[in-house]
């Protein structure tokens, strides 16, 4: 047996290597933990800190915008967290597509569906509450989801982190959309799109630190 092989085997024997089962359990716990934190923070803000919005919306308007946003969020999560059957994960093009298209798709769907119901009136509210709510909901889940891929991306960890951040922001969008009745474009840009982009930005920084393969 050559010297290098012996050294590798000795180093491997001294280093932990979680099994498939342990890794899956850990990943499931992180995803469940992230979801629980997001929902808890949502109810905390929606019921206690800001209070429930009393402006009525038709069920079709509410269901349509939320369902469309949920589909976009589902795609974003699936693409950013899935590896597409390869250890190297998604290519740069997929991750850029998720990061760039998701906020546009969410905004486009919300405007299009709301316009069909004549519900595009600007509100005097700037969207600060939606902004705070979305970022508070997304920060911890984003870090937990990034931890499921910790130290395993040798190619573009920053981009993967940004995609995860945007995907989490898209999930937060779905919940905030259930709470916020305003569909004015300026409000949506400030209160709904901006937090998704900010989460993507924080995700990019966190990704560089957490997801990169390091010695």
């Amino acid at each position: 047996m050559n010297d290098l092989k012996q050294r590798i085997l000795a180093a491997a024997a001294a280093s932990p290597s979680p099994s498939w089962k342990a890794t899956r359990i850990r990943r499931a716990l992180f995803v469940a933990g992230g979801s629980a934190v997001m929902v808890t923070v949502y109810w905390l803000f929606a019921l206690w800190i800001f209070g429930w919005q009393s402006i009525p919306r038709s069920l079709i308007l509410l269901g349509g915008t939320s369902l469309g946003a949920a589909v976009v969020a589902g795609f974003a999560v699936g693409i950013s967290l899935g590896r597409g059957g390869r250890m190297l994960g998604r290519s740069r093009r997929w991750l850029i597509a998720v990061t760039a298209i998701s906020p546009l798709a969410l905004l486009g769907w919300k405007i299009a569906w709301s316009a069909a119901f004549g519900n595009l009136d600007e509100s005097p509210r700037l969207g600060h509450r939606c902004l705070v709510m979305s970022i508070s909901m997304g920060m911890v889940p984003m870090l937990l989801l990034a931890l499921t891929r910790r130290g395993e991306d040798p190619r573009h960890p920053g981009l993967l982190g940004a995609a995860i951040g945007v995907a989490v922001g898209a999930c937060a969008w779905v919940l905030v959309d259930l709470w916020c009745p305003v569909a004015g474009v300026l409000h949506l840009l400030r209160g709904h799109v901006l937090p998704v982009l900010l989460l993507g930005l924080v995700g990019a920084v966190a990704g560089k630190v957490l997801l990169a393969v390091r010695k």
């Binding site: 290098l4 050294r7 590798i8 180093a11 491997a12 280093s15 932990p16 290597s17 979680p18 099994s19 498939w20 089962k21 342990a22 890794t23 899956r24 590896r83 059957g85 390869r86 250890m87 130290g151 395993e152 393969v213 010695k215």
Partner: peptide, 15 residues
């Protein structure tokens, strides 16, 4: 050696 160690450490995440 580090490269193989990474493969070892990530075996549970192997697709």
């Amino acid at each position: 050696q580090t490269c193989f160690l990474k493969l070892h450490q990530h075996r549970g995440r192997f697709t």
